[in-house]
């Protein structure tokens, strides 16, 4: 299950060598965005990002594909670019108390659950509450129901996801990392919702 077709073929991991990484390139045209992934272990958090990062075929874009840190730049229609720096977090219960170290200063939090696991949906709600309490106030929140291809085993009705997200002012989408359904849509929508630094 999970990533299947999107196993990394050639890793262009450039850990630590990013000299030209040009820190703080925070002008209005080129955003650098810290995105943190939260969710129970096994819901396919890393598969979603791998799909996203590998699915972009712009040869000019600089990507970093680590096992748990990935970055990818996307170009939007208004000729701005958004560089997502994606921080994966360990989803096991025993690491739950460490999460604040990761989501501190994040502009975006993507909370992922598995539509075939009610437990993972409950865990997602825990993360949302946690973020509302301790995350930065202008953080963009997205709720993602993954493994949408496994609809025969569905335990979480799509309506429940929609309603919960609406109540909490979040963006909601169901994805399948396996079939790549809605993966790009997820990141494009997030990019649109980002607050822009005001310029003239």
């Amino acid at each position: 299950m999970g990533c299947s077709a999107s196993l990394p073929e050639r890793s262009s991991n450039q850990l630590g060598r990013g000299n030209s990484e040009n820190g703080g390139g925070q002008d209005a045209k080129n955003l650098r965005v810290k995105l943190v992934l939260l969710g129970d272990s096994g819901v396919g958090k890393s598969c979603i990002v791998l799909r996203f990062v590998r699915g972009q075929f712009d040869p000019t874009s600089k990507v970093t594909v680590g096992a748990s840190f990935l970055s990818q730049t996307i170009a939007l229609q208004d000729s701005t670019t958004v560089k997502f720096e994606i921080w994966d977090t360990a989803g096991q219960e025993r690491y739950a108390s460490l999460a604040p170290l990761y989501y501190r200063g994040a502009a975006v939090a993507v909370v992922v659950y598995d539509i075939t696991s009610l437990e993972s949906f409950n865990k997602a709600q825990y993360w949302v509450k946690e973020l509302q309490k301790h995350g930065s106030s202008d953080i963009v929140l997205a709720l993602v129901g993954n493994k949408a291809d496994l609809h025969e085993q569905r335990e979480v009705p799509i309506q429940d996801g929609i309603e919960y997200a609406e109540k909490n002012g979040m963006f909601f989408i169901e994805t399948s990392a396996k079939t790549a359904d809605n993966i790009n849509e997820l990141f494009e929508e997030i990019a649109k919702r980002l607050p822009r630094p005001s310029t003239n």
Binding site: L7, P8, N13, L37, L50, A67, D88, G91, L98
Partner: peptide, 24 residues
């Protein structure tokens, strides 16, 4: 550690689990 995880993802039919594996 990162390379170890990436290699594991390539060689086996091992589903990459990202930070779930990295942190431990």
């Amino acid at each position: 550690i990162n390379n170890l995880l990436l290699n594991a993802a390539m060689t086996e039919n091992h589903v990459p689990a990202g930070a779930d594996e990295f942190l431990p």
